[in-house]
Design a protein around this nucleic acid. Structure first.
Lengths: 135, 135
DNA sequence: TTATTTTCATTGCATATGCAATTATTATGT
DNA sequence: ACATAATAATTGCATATGCAATGAAAATAA
């Protein structure tokens, strides 16, 4: 039954290749896409929190976010009570492009699920949720 | 409903991090794991075929496979009728370690799916199969 | 047959990645 | 209060990655 995890892997890599290609031109290749979309939706997470939420190595996340700060998509703020934490916020530039990222993700999702009925989509969602607790 | 693709991405990255950690010591970090397991199961694919099957950039796949050739896990053969193709085969070293890779994948899969009944696993598999045709 | 296009593999180059080690800050134990 | 351990961010370094361009062989068109 490990065709499941193989399929999952293939889907992920395909989507990543596509989002990189799509947003390369605006400096959002190398999976930057997912960082930006998450930070826009939940501003104020600290660096490690972002990394863990995405299941990405903290060093890699750190450098990617740094790059996004350099290119003016994100900005960092030292937490007021815990001096270790750097909280991540979107800039206006990020907020401006967010709708485009969002609709790309929506389109990708709809395309992926286009062979499923709404009920099947619901089922798939629930089953994957159950799985997420086990990683 | 795009929590589906987000979940899928997270699961993939988690598994990759784990397999890299697990097999780093035998020179199978950086996702080499998945190449090796596939080539062992279906020897004789050509380079681009492997890349496409895994949905990995061909250049990256080329270099990873080259590394695996250098470390004596794989070997290449020029196709006898089409001089462009390089077919990929596992060495004895690969065959020897394959069972370990296989059982790692099996364990990962079982752990991931441990909250699902067999019937639910079957459903998940079928739904994902339907999705794979749309990427 | 010859010219054109397509398909694979390969390389050059700039950049990204990730492990291991370090620093800074906070939490915990005594 | 002080020492010790834990957690976050950061850096150094070696290596991996991936786009764009090239080379080599085969398929297709003319």
């Amino acid at each position: 039954m490990f065709k499941i995890i193989r399929n999952i892997g293939k889907i992920t890599r395909s989507l990543q290749i596509k989002s990189n290609k799509q947003f390369q031109a605006v400096g959002l290749g190398n999976n930057s896409f997912i960082y930006l979309i998450r930070v826009c939706e939940k501003p104020g997470m600290f660096l490690g929190e972002v990394a863990d939420k995405l299941s990405i190595d903290r060093t890699t996340a750190f450098r990617t976010i740094k790059r996004l700060v350099d290119t003016n998509y994100l900005r960092l703020e030292v937490d007021s009570t815990d001096g270790r934490l750097r909280r991540v916020f979107p800039t206006d530039k990020a907020k401006k492009i967010y709708p485009e990222l969002h609709s790309f993700e929506k389109d990708s999702s709809e395309k992926l699920l286009s062979n499923l009925t709404l009920e099947e989509q619901q089922t798939l969602f629930q089953l994957l949720e159950k799985c997420s607790n086990n990683i």
